[in-house]
Amino acid sequence: MAAYIIRRLFAAVLLLLVVSAVTFAIFFLVPRIAGQTVDQLATQYVGKDANPDTVAAVKKNLGFDQPVHLQYWHFVKALVVGADYNFGPDASHCDAPCFGYSFKSHIAVWPQLTSRIPITLSLAVGAAVIWLVSGVAIGVLSALKRGTFVDRFFMGVALAGVSLPIFFTGMLAMAVLTVQWPVWGDGINYVAFTDNPAEWAWNLLVPWCSLAFLYSALYARLTRAGMLETMSEDYIRTARAKGLKESAVVAKHGLRSALTPIVTIFGMDFGLLLGGAVITESVFSFKGIGEYAVAGIKDNDLPIVMGVTLVAAFFIVICNLLVDVVYAAIDPRVRYS
């Protein structure tokens, strides 16, 4: 098991390197192919007054006058050993893992990322708990009550959940709950868990539910399909024939088997969310990783884009690794060699 995890972590590092190289290439090479010059690139990081002196200074300070492969090497090196930057009277050292400084604001990216992770994590964990519990419960219930009104109702709601985008449900919830019936009269604002756990949960409730509405619908349909298939297997009939209680048949034999694909997709979904719930964070104006990604992309700010991409990729890799480990617990047939 330990060897397996080490191998996977090693592969993850390689994967992150590939992801960073591809992101770097997309950023620098694609515009170059479309005819953008280095001066034009540098001009984007200058204010309205893009005079040649300013552009030249910015170009030099951001390293755009160097070949792209050298710039990439400096980036990777800074990740491992840190780097020195000069955006003021004295050079400042950026400790590893150094994602560099924003091209736009010249503020270090890593502290920004770390300050935003708790927000995204709060959003993702709460929503995941809700959608996992409600989605799986509804899916199991629908499967067991197949063809009844309960099944049709829940699957109808699930269809709506899958169909309605978060920017619709989220905005609707905001309009209704902050203006029409101002339950959240002062708006929905993120409060850190460490500052006030009750306020934290209260302000996250609507975003959690909006996000979970989308996902739980998906999970309910997946669970229902899995349960229907599993519950028709021979070993379920055998279990019932042995005289096991129905609840034990459903929970121990049916659900356990049906959960395998759910766990797989949960790992992916949760990892993706940790990399930034872009739309949800934008709708509710939460300053998480996703909102940071949008800002980076909008401003063509490579260090931010690289930082968010690598953090997102890291979370996805880790979540998938955890899923693979969890497989062994769920499915005894799985062994690591």
Binding site: G47, N51, V58, N61, N86, H106
Partner: peptide, 26 residues
Amino acid sequence: APEALSNGPTYFKAHLEGGDKYQGPY
């Protein structure tokens, strides 16, 4: 000091005597 503070206008630089030569306090 456009290498660090590049957002603002540079009217003082444009109009001050020797503004094209001075390298900034950094």
